[in-house]
Each structure stands twice: as C-alpha cells, then as structure tokens.
Measured scan of single mutants.
Amino acid sequence: TGEEYIAVGDFTAQQVGDLTFKKGEILLAIEKKPDGWWIAKDAKGNEGLVPRTYLEPYS
C-alpha cells in the first residue's frame, strides 16, 4: 500500500508508461523516485509514472 495524493492539475501521458489523470483524482503513490516522477495507481487500478509536482498529500 502507498500514500494517497490528490491531483492539483490535469496531466496527459507524454509517453508510454505515464499515467493520465485529472485534477481532483486521488492517486496512490507506489514508489517515490528521486527524479520527481513517481509510480502511482488510480482508482481504476491503472498504474504508471506521474510528475510529483501535480500531487499534494490527501488527508
């Protein structure tokens, strides 16, 4: 299990392996990579890379 984050903006996948999401979606951070791209999972179970700058902790 990971930590929940809320998307603060829309993001469209730029390449294969990225995860597209919309502002307000809750994402589960699976792995926090030091380069600023995290592996996350959305509510539908889709998994991919997301930019850290689009996420804020969800409580």
Rank of each mutant, 00 (worst) to 15 (best):
A40Q: 00
V8C: 13
E31T: 10
E3Y: 11
E56D: 07
K41T: 07
I39A: 05
T53H: 14
T12L: 10
F21R: 00
I39V: 14
K32I: 08
E47W: 11
G48V: 03
K33F: 13
V8W: 05
K41D: 01
W38E: 01
G17S: 06
Y5E: 00
K44V: 09
Q14I: 12
W37M: 09
F11P: 01
T53V: 13
I39M: 11
F21G: 02
K44D: 11
E56H: 08
E4A: 14
Y54S: 09
V50H: 01
G36P: 03
A40K: 00
Y5H: 04
A29E: 02
K22A: 08
K33W: 09
L55D: 03
E4G: 07
L55F: 05
K41Y: 05
L27W: 00
Y54N: 07
K33V: 06
G17K: 04
G24D: 06
V16C: 12
E25F: 04
E47F: 14
G2M: 13
G17V: 04
G2L: 14
K41N: 03
Y54D: 05
L27K: 01
D18L: 11
P34F: 10
Q14M: 12
V16I: 13
L49W: 12
Y58G: 06
D42A: 03
Y5T: 01
A43H: 10
I39G: 03
D10K: 02
Q14Y: 08
Q14S: 11
A43I: 10
V50G: 02
G17L: 04
E25P: 00
R52P: 13
T12Y: 13
A13W: 04
G24Q: 02
L49I: 09
W38L: 08
P57C: 08
I30F: 06
V16Y: 11
G36E: 06
L19Y: 00
G48L: 02
R52T: 10
S59M: 12
W38Q: 01
V8S: 07
L49M: 12
W38P: 01
A40E: 01
K41I: 13
N46W: 05
E25V: 05
E25I: 03
K23I: 08
K32M: 09
T20D: 07
L55I: 08
K44W: 15
L49K: 13
E25C: 07
L49D: 04
P34Y: 09
R52C: 15
L49F: 14
E47M: 15
K33P: 07
W38A: 01
K23H: 06
R52V: 13
G48Q: 01
I26N: 02
Q15K: 15
E47C: 14
E47G: 05
D18R: 11
F11L: 04
G36W: 03
E3I: 11
T12P: 05
Y5A: 01
A29C: 15
D35R: 02
P34Q: 11
P57K: 10
G48H: 02
A13Y: 03
F21E: 01
K33C: 14
K32Y: 07
D18N: 10
F11K: 03
G17M: 05
W38R: 00
I39T: 08
Y58S: 08
T20G: 12
Y58T: 09
G45K: 03
R52W: 11
A40M: 15
W37H: 06
D18S: 10
F11Q: 02
I30V: 10
T12A: 09
V16W: 11
G36R: 02
L19A: 00
G2T: 12
E31P: 03
D35C: 09
F11M: 04
D10I: 02
G2A: 13
E3F: 10
S59T: 14
E56S: 08
L27S: 01
G9Y: 15
Q14T: 13
Y5L: 04
A40C: 15
P57D: 06
I30A: 02
L49P: 04
F21V: 09
A40H: 01
N46K: 09
K23Y: 07
V50S: 01
G24P: 00
G45V: 00
K23L: 07
E56G: 04
K33M: 10
K23E: 07
L27T: 00
P57Q: 08
I26H: 06
T1S: 13
P34G: 11
Y58W: 12
G48T: 00
F21W: 01
V8A: 06
E56A: 10
G17A: 05
D10V: 02
V16G: 09
V50N: 01
T20E: 08
V8P: 01
A43T: 12
L28F: 11
T12K: 10
Q15H: 13
D18G: 14
A13M: 06
W37L: 06
T53P: 07
S59L: 14
K32D: 03
Q15S: 13
P57E: 10
V50A: 08
K41F: 05
I39H: 09
E4R: 14
I6K: 07
F11H: 07
L19G: 01
L19T: 01
E3M: 12
D42E: 01
Y54L: 15
G45H: 04
T1V: 13
A43P: 08
D35H: 06
A29L: 15
Y58V: 12
